[in-house]
């Protein structure tokens, strides 16, 4: 089966059972949301998928391939990209370099490459630069491309991180609170982009952790509602968010 699948995932940290036998499937061509109270284990799920944590039990499958226990960079090379909850950027670099660093192909990694294939490197670099400029233009940061990334505001840094993720062309994108800290208009734009990505390319899988219910209702096709490390509800967005228990436990009305 294609897509990303987690099966019976469990994780105990410092004697606390953070994730308890979570099974979920994230289908390509769909936006799936993980919602739930703070501390429900949503980010931990992302960490388990990406290899930052190894599960005590259970497994992660990607296109039927068991990717449990792979190193984080290996997971990324399989095409699973991730946006961190707290914004992470390369502060000492310019905005453009931030994106270029991400979207240069792995092939140019050898330390001898620039001396052995200088022309090819130039071409690759030019291509990466063009692609980076395209995505910066897209999120509205093109005018600031030569600024030090550390001088951007929080929201702009978030947009930069999103541009970096999009430029890399990951097949699966795990987005941890992509809309937090963004202005309504930027949120709208990012949402529209994500929706466009899945509708244009049915191969892409997007998983979002988000507390902004407006974003979730408008964007997500499926919702997993998590509570205390377990999946409490799963279903179509309106069904899950309409359920009385979810309203009482999470939404507060």
């Amino acid at each position: 089966m294609v897509g990303l699948k987690i099966k019976n995932l469990s994780k105990t940290l410092l004697g606390m059972e953070i994730i308890r036998k979570v099974t979920a499937t994230f289908l390509p061509g769909r936006i799936t949301a993980l919602v739930g109270p703070n501390g429900a284990g949503k980010t931990t799920i992302f960490n388990l998928i990406c290899g930052y944590l190894t599960p005590d039990n259970g497994a992660v499958f990607y296109d039927d391939e068991d990717i449990t226990g792979l190193q984080p960079y290996q997971v990324a090379r399989k095409g699973i990209g991730r946006l961190f909850q707290d914004v992470r950027i390369f502060e000492g670099m310019t905005v453009l370099e931030n994106v270029v660093t991400a979207c240069m192909p792995y092939a140019s990694e050898s330390p001898l490459f620039p001396f052995m294939r200088p022309l090819r490197l130039s071409r690759l670099y030019k291509h990466a630069r063009e692609r980076s400029c395209y995505w910066l233009e897209f999120v509205g940061l093109y005018a600031k491309k030569d600024y030090p990334a550390s001088e951007l505001s929080f929201g702009q840094q978030k947009l930069l991180a999103i541009a970096r993720l999009l430029s890399k062309g990951f097949r699966v994108m795990l987005l941890d609170e992509p809309a937090s800290g963004l202005s309504p208009i930027a949120t709208k734009k990012v949402m529209a982009t994500l929706e466009r990505i899945v509708s244009e390319d049915r191969d892409k899988t997007i998983v979002v952790v988000e507390h902004n219910m407006k974003v979730v209702t408008e964007m997500a096709d499926w919702v997993y509602f998590m509570n205390e490390g377990q999946v409490a509800f799963f279903g179509r967005t309106d069904h899950v968010l309409g359920a009385r228990e979810v309203r009482e436990m999470y939404l507060g009305f």
């Binding site: 190193q71 960079y73 990324a76 992470r88 140019s108 620039p114």
Partner: peptide, 29 residues
Amino acid sequence: LSIRKNTLVKAIWAMGIAPELVIALGLPY
């Protein structure tokens, strides 16, 4: 010369700022 365009050296540069981010982009730490 190698620092300017080489991904690896760029990534090494980037590693000093945010190592976990470099890994998340698929670069072998």
